[in-house]
């Protein structure tokens, strides 16, 4: 009984930590990320967090986290409310599909994490930009390459940082 209670408390603490990280990443996303924009392409740190949560906690929590992070982002970024919630919910679902109970750490420390970030980001970006960009204004290949591949690649590059941090912690 105590063990179950402990487990719940531990999960609750983790969620609070996720929320705090989300707040910090939001601040970074809006304040510092302008300095790393290349050719209009910028990384999505909150998406990396969303993928992280999905891999750590499972698909259900990933979906909920994606929605909550997305809706918060919509509100603070003055974006059209619902767009980030929608895309990050789907990203959470995709990333959560790679969840394997007991192998969370293994996935996060490996290259598989980067692969999951890339796939989730790719789908996320295609849907997100699909809302804003008329395909009549841009060719499908350009849309696919810029908003699909380039944005996702850049986000994946930033996903290396938490992966390496975690790996270092493990070695220590």
């Amino acid at each position: 009984m105590n063990r179950a209670k402990q487990k719940t408390n531990y999960a609750f603490q983790r969620y609070i930590v996720y929320a705090l990280i989300a707040i910090v990443l939001s601040l970074i996303q809006f304040s510092l990320l302008d300095f790393v924009v290349v050719q209009g392409v910028s990384p999505d740190l909150l998406l990396v967090l969303c993928v992280w949560i999905s891999i750590r906690e499972g698909r259900f929590v990933g979906i909920i986290a994606g929605f909550l992070i997305g809706i918060t982002l919509d509100i603070v970024s003055f974006d059209l409310v619902g767009i980030n919630a929608f895309t990050k919910t789907i990203a959470g679902f995709i990333a959560g599909s790679f969840y394997q109970e007991g192998k969370e750490q293994l996935i996060i420390h490996g290259l598989k994490f980067l692969f999951i970030v890339f796939i989730s980001s790719f789908v996320h970006n295609l849907i997100y930009f699909f809302f804003y960009i008329k395909l009549s204004d841009i060719t499908f290949v350009s849309f696919f390459m810029k908003y699909g591949v380039a944005f996702s690649f850049y986000t994946t590059v930033f996903a290396i940082i938490p992966m390496l941090v975690k790996r270092k912690e493990r070695i220590i």
Binding site: F60, I63, I64, G66, F67, G70, I71, D74, L80, V81, G82, I83, A85, F86, T89, I90, F93, F129, F130, F131, Y132, I133, K134, L135, S136
Partner: peptide, 26 residues
């Protein structure tokens, strides 16, 4: 959960300023 949250998100999108989302509307 995915279905429900997607529906909520799309509902929120539709009650917002849809003129912004030209691609979606098209």
């Amino acid at each position: 959960a995915l279905t429900l949250l997607c529906i909520i998100s799309l509902a929120l999108i539709s009650i917002g300023d849809v003129s912004k989302i030209g691609g979606y509307r098209a």
